[in-house]
Write a protein that binds this DNA or RNA. Structure first.
Length: 566
RNA sequence: CGGGACGUGGCGCAGUUUGGUAGCGCACCGGGCUGGGGAUCCGGUGGUCGCAGGUUCAAAUCCUGUCGUCCCGACCA
């Protein structure tokens, strides 16, 4: 492609609205333009990159035995009401009404839709099947940001598998996990796969593929000694396995006037926060629960929601407390708290003689012990894992953390959707069963941003060769017609084997070099006056800045070889 | 939705405090010169200052409302 024939509007300055490097560079290099918050036009150069990612994803899906199809973006309300998600999705779902008053949503995902399509898989002989599509998805994010990283319309590859049983699902799930690893590797990205939470999609088993980057919105907790890695939301640690070694002391009431928070009480009594137990009152659906965690730990509401079997738990407000005389805000404790369910973090098993609220304004209890003073209804993992704690998997490593960009997420769904939507197959005995399902997503447009987030420098983008919109940028220098002729010839000869972006503009050398660095193709092929004498093409490798002089004949082979290492 | 900031040619910004009828750099167009890291000179095009009301002889500037955008929190590929 000749630049003079192309449409690559590069910008000299960062757009004021862009915050992170990928957003700035995507705008500056002429890859995308914003239309409204969270909506982007993919300009020709950006579109080429997006298609490269799409094709890698498509190849790996096909290799894994998946079948591509395309479903409508608009989906009828009734379908979503059947699974309860018309309400559950809330404001995140974009909705439209047709001229007859019938309501639709712009698909945020397609579990409902694909499940109705899969109803045509009637026999166990038709299973397993894995279907996928690559399509725009719509989620009315509370706060779209970082360009295409978190946008309201984005390109996603979503795959769904259908099985007779869990074993078959596990097989496909494992194969998809491998395919996902291949995808991110082929895109040239450094990543880590981590254990994750199901969220709105649901499902017990789930794994995220995180591209590692400082600006990532997710925190990954990992063990340097083994392969344990998990999203902060689900990460566990084993700091609590110590056996209690202290003898229990008799419980005692202590006046703590106006001291409510862990900080206030621990300072007032001159003890470490870890000597206290926090009693947090939550509303979980219809019931009220008390969650007990050590004073120095932070409760993870997602874990509590999972344990109580609700989508979301809500911390008691002052109004809630006002309505319950038995719960004293700031002085709640588990002793004598029989009216609500008590869920305690496992770590309390190893705590002795701790301090809690006395359920009486202005008082706390000292030397409280589990069993002797109160009983726990449910033991669970309730807290966020913290850096420095022991790995729950190998026990040897101390946990560390890093930031990541979630580009892929795979789930084992089970029969949630097939049951609600009445999607069944018949087995060998003519008995009907709901499909066992899995679903698998890749944020295709997000991969583009993630790649730039991981690979760029002061001058611009450094594309992994697999994602680069073109293989090389051919640059002519000087206004000599002879240079132009030579460059034309080289362009024509390379065109059969490579995608070349040919900067044939009659602008100054500086502009050409700056634009080439900004656009970030793996190679820059430079032809100036010298070429007529030396017959050597000057090549600059964008990633390393190294330069080489090569004859026209050896150039193709050299490029093929060199790009492998980039 | 809560907290903060901002809307002035395509992009980046100044001007707003103290009202007087819009300016700079880049980009763009024509021409000269230059041609290995965003060169330079001359001459141009382009803005009802987000929108709607209000105050005033006079509003980018003051007031009210509204829309949009960005940042920090809860959501997610």
């Amino acid at each position: 492609m000749r630049i003079s024939d192309s449409f690559i509007p590069t910008l000299r300055d960062d757009p004021a609205e862009a915050e992170i490097v990928s957003h700035k560079l995507m705008a500056r290099a002429g890859l995308v333009r914003k239309s409204a918050a969270g909506f982007y036009t993919w300009l020709p150069l950006g579109w080429r990159v997006l298609r490269k990612v799409e094709n890698i994803v498509r190849e790996e899906m096909d290799r894994a035995g998946c079948l591509e199809l395309l479903m409508p973006i608009l989906q009828p309300k009734e379908l979503w009401e059947a699974t309860g998600r018309w309400a559950a999705y809330g404001h995140e779902m974009m909705r439209v009404t047709d001229r007859h008053g019938r309501e639709f949503c712009l698909g945020p995902t397609h579990e409902e839709m694909i499940t109705t399509v899969a109803k045509e898989l009637r026999s166990y002989k038709d299973l397993p099947k894995c279907l996928y599509q690559i399509q725009a998805k719509f989620r009315d994010e509370i706060r779209p940001r970082f360009g295409v990283m978190r946008s309201r319309e984005f390109v996603m590859k979503d795959a769904y598998s259908f099985h007779t049983d869990e074993a078959s699902l596990q097989k496909t799930y494992d194969r998809m996990s491998e395919a996902y690893s291949r995808i991110v590797e082929r895109c040239g990205l450094t990543y880590r796969s981590v254990k994750a939470a199901g969220g709105l999609i649901g499902g017990a088993v789930s794994e995220e593929f995180m591209v590692l980057a400082e600006t990532g919105e997710d925190v990954v907790i990992y063990c340097p000694e083994c392969d344990y890695a998990a999203n902060l939301d689900t990460a566990t640690s084993r700091w609590h396995t110590r056996a209690p070694d202290e003898a229990g002391l008799p419980i005692a009431k202590k006046a703590t006037p106006d001291k409510r928070s862990i900080k206030e009480v621990s300072e007032f009594l001159d003890v470490e926060p870890r000597s206290l137990v926090k009693t947090l009152i939550f509303r979980a659906g219809d019931k009220v629960v008390a969650a007990l965690v050590p004073g120095d730990k932070e409760l993870n509401p997602e874990k509590l929601a999972t344990i109580t079997g609700v989508g979301e738990v809500e911390l008691f407000s002052e109004e809630d407390f006002a309505a319950r005389a038995d719960l004293v805000s700031g002085f709640v404790g588990p002793v004598g708290l029989d009216a609500v369910e008590i869920i305690a973090d496992h770590s309390l098993k190893s705590m002795r003689n701790f301090i809690t609220g006395a359920n009486e304004a202005g008082f706390h209890l000292l030397n409280v012990n589990v069993e002797t003073d109160f009983s726990v209804d449910v033991w669970a993992d309730l807290v966020y894992a913290q850096v420095g704690e022991s790995c729950s998997q190998c026990d040897a490593g101390r946990l560390e953390q890093m930031r990541g960009i979630e580009v892929g997420h795979i789930f084992q769904l089970g029969t949630k959707y097939s049951e609600l939507l009445d999607a069944q197959y018949v087995d060998e005995n003519s008995e009907s069963h709901p499909f066992v399902m899995g679903c698998y997503g890749v944020g295709v447009s997000r991969v583009v941003a993630a790649a730039i987030e991981q690979r760029s420098d002061e001058s611009g983008i450094i594309w992994p060769p697999a994602l680069a919109p073109y293989d090389a940028q051919l640059i002519t220098l000087g206004k000599d017609d002879s240079v132009k002729d030579e460059a034309d010839k080289l362009y024509a000869s390379l065109a059969t084997d490579f995608d070349i972006l040919y900067d044939d503009r009659s602008v100054s050398a500086g502009i050409k070099f700056k634009d080439a660095d900004l656009i970030g193709l793996p190679f820059q092929l430079i032809i100036g006056k010298r070429f007529a004498e030396t017959r050597q093409v000057e090549v600059k490798i964008r990633a390393t800045g190294e330069r080489a002089e090569l004859s026209v004949e050896e150039l193709p082979g050299w490029m093929r070889e060199t790009r492998e290492g980039l």
